[in-house]
Write a protein that binds this DNA or RNA. Sequence first.
RNA 1: GGGUAGGCGGCCGAGUUGGUCGAAGGCGCCUGACUGUAAAUCAGGUACGGGGAAACGUCGGUGGUUCAAAUCCAUCCCUGCCCA
Length: 379
Amino acid sequence: MAVKLELLQESKETRARLGKLHTPHGTVDTPVFMPVGTQATVKAMTPEELKQIDAQIILSNTYHLFLRPGHELVAEAGGLHKFMNWDRPILTDSGGFQVFSLGDLRKITEEGVTFKSHLDGSTLFLGPEKAMEIQMALGSDIAMAFDECTPYPSEHEYAKKSLERTTRWAERCLQAHTRKDQAVFGIVQGGMFRDLREQSVQEITALPFPGFAIGGLSVGEPKHLMYEVLDYTIPLMPREKPRYLMGVGSPDCLIEGVIRGVDMFDCVLPTRIARNGTVMTSQGKVVIRNAEHTRDMRPLDPNCSCYACQNYSRAYIRHLFKADEILGLRLTTIHNLHFLQDLMKQIRQAIKDESLLAFREEFFARYGYDNEKESPVSC
RNA sequence: GGGUAGGCGGCCGAGUUGGUCGAAGGCGCCUGACUGUAAAUCAGGUACGGGGAAACGUCGGUGGUUCAAAUCCAUCCCUGCCCA
């Protein structure tokens, strides 16, 4: 098996687990947060910088690399790792999210999905077999089964149809996949319906995948709904295999996810909001563009040891943003990714110490938790 | 000194057959959003004075024509360009 989870510890007070995920390109401590590098680059970051913030594994994307530069070219370059100069593990999303996010540009059939390229409008097809072919050419450590990320809200009837099709696609993915040094993870769907989530877990986990993802969450639903789904879905997933909650990455959701038994997360949030001028700090989020930081000579986060916080002030980074200087968003990206890597380290330590619930309490007290709102501050 | 083009909100700038213009658009500024990346993106707000709010006044100044002026007239001031 290309990828295997070694369970080190299971929390007694929560469903959290501590583990090591073994992959062809090295071992990853779980629970883990995976920065997203859609186009074979984590935007604004060099691989060296990713290593400096202790990124253990990153994501890339089938759909986007298929369109540009093309998977053949990546294979010709020696595979994705070599192409982008990243020698640690890579997980590739299958394009299933683009079925959701490029909603107006695609058509779903049993065979697969016809997209209108967002680049030039040309027609292209992505199905289970094609998604596997592309990911095998890319050579990621973990490929994802081709799924449909069910939109929210969806009718029960549609969510059921969609999940059942995702199951059939999952079977075809396994059949098409031949690369031994690459794992494929299946994806659970089912919208926000308990019976459908249960059906989907049952169907997907019956297939011989070495790991399972929960998809179709964090697509616009209220947080309490997502937590509910996790509460009843995760206990149905196999204990000895990794559980990956797709597309989730705000600090509060990471903590809540781990508590519910998630081992892996990915999210564009830290890198995207960084480029748009927002940073996550131990005291909550800070919009660095805002006027209040004009003369603030303190670092982004007083409790942070990242390169940006060790060397630059809020006033300077704000200036860089206002002046449209590229260093500004590089520094905020470094900081946000460091912040989440650091958060995951603290979470892993708290699991080890059996103090995760206390950690959550303390974290929310510092980060901001407004009971008037139905969920913790988002990022 | 002569000629000529112009002076509009923080800046640039549209508007000049008078009305529907206190005024398009851009920039700047302020604020918000962002969760398997069509995102270094997107959305909203943003002239001044006056006041509780409204009325009202202000498109270089002043005066005029008109039911009505940023738009027409007179005059003054200022700026660019050309000629001497």
